[in-house]
Write a protein that binds this DNA or RNA. Structure first.
Lengths: 192, 192
DNA sequence: ACTATAATATACCGAAGAGTACAGAAAAGT
DNA sequence: ACTTTTCTGTACTCTTCGGTATATTATAGT
């Protein structure tokens, strides 16, 4: 009973994700959000509660999508090391205008220190990605492609830190060749 | 002739740096700034021009200080590799409440993509730090401590990316031991 | 068709945002 | 001492912020 929603919640959330992703929390105004989402202000509050909650939901939606994409991307690698190399490559912008970076890195810098809940959301996501990567590290070790010096989880954590660094570097370094070289250098730490 | 300034410009700038450093550009209001700087609003505009210019000045002041500190820190290392290890350690918070991270990393994420001038300021600073690090890489290579596979500048650039990643990771990872392990793993990429 | 219910749209709220006009206060030159 | 110049402090501007009250519209069950 009652009137039905004139918009798809997940579509609106996806649009909100885009806005927060490349403007950040503070710089994204409600007008920016409602305009991009194509809904009115009260609809936003009725559906998502507040700007802060919308931000959290948007971040979580982004993370879920990123993990799904990552799983697929890793599976496509010819070898475990190739999979990990592909992972690192996702931090390298191929066109000039996909300079949004990684929403999780942005959130880590802008909001993690102030907002405990966001910090938790990020920690959980990173832990899941780490576990995902660790499987490939482990497979690489079994195949003799990767050194046995580190545990798979430690190596995976290191790769996470490395890709974070690539995302930061990409903000001021346009040349993909430089970024690729740095990724390759970082990856070499895992080779036997 | 005329009235003399009631405050020291560099002191006020240092205070402004603190505010921007741990709040970011958007989240730092003029009230935050003037209160912390201990000056009135018109004095701020008269001396620094605008919030954006103050931000740029604050960032540059931070960079100059950071480079001076870095130069000293690197010189204190027992060996070139030890110096580089100390460099990476600066990204690891020793107390619970120095979670401001690195102003340059914050600026890279929050403002570099929107503001061309800030991007330039960051690029120049990072280039200088890279050059500084490259000297120690070179010395390490001469001493046989560091692999000859990479050019000093490439290796230095990689270290820069690595420390960026450490700064991001530190936002959601409290344990210094984990960060140290990741730094060590990253550093191992340069060893022979 | 009627009614209860839920979503929409318009218009608004007080608060806080960045930036400034203007008058008073202090220092330097004469 | 007086004038000129520069800085300071109060109070203001206009705009935009996040969030909401209210009235209207559309749907589902009866």
């Amino acid at each position: 009973m009652g009137r039905v929603k004139q918009f798809k919640v997940e579509d609106a959330l996806a649009k909100a994700t885009d806005v927060f992703w490349h403007k950040g929390f503070e710089a994204a105004s409600l007008s920016d959000l409602t305009e991009e989402m194509g809904i009115q202000r009260p609809s936003l509050y009725d559906t998502f509660g507040s700007k802060a909650e919308l931000y959290r939901d948007a971040l979580m939606a982004y993370q879920a999508g990123a993990r799904a994409q990552l799983e697929q991307l890793l599976a496509e690698g010819a070898t475990p090391v190739d999979s990990l190399r592909r992972f690192l490559s996702t931090a390298i912008p191929n066109s000039v205008n996909d300079r949004k970076g990684c929403f999780c890195v942005n959130a880590s810098i802008e909001t993690a220190s102030h907002e405990a809940e966001i910090q938790e959301v990020l920690q959980k996501h990173f832990a899941q990605v780490q576990t995902l990567l660790a499987r490939y590290v482990s497979a690489g070790q079994a195949a003799g492609e990767i050194s046995l010096d580190l545990s798979p989880m430690d190596a995976a954590g290191y790769l996470l830190t490395l890709i974070h660094g690539l995302h930061v570097t990409a903000r001021t370094t346009a040349d993909p060749a430089i970024l690729t070289a740095r990724a390759e250098c970082g990856l070499s730490a895992l080779l036997p």
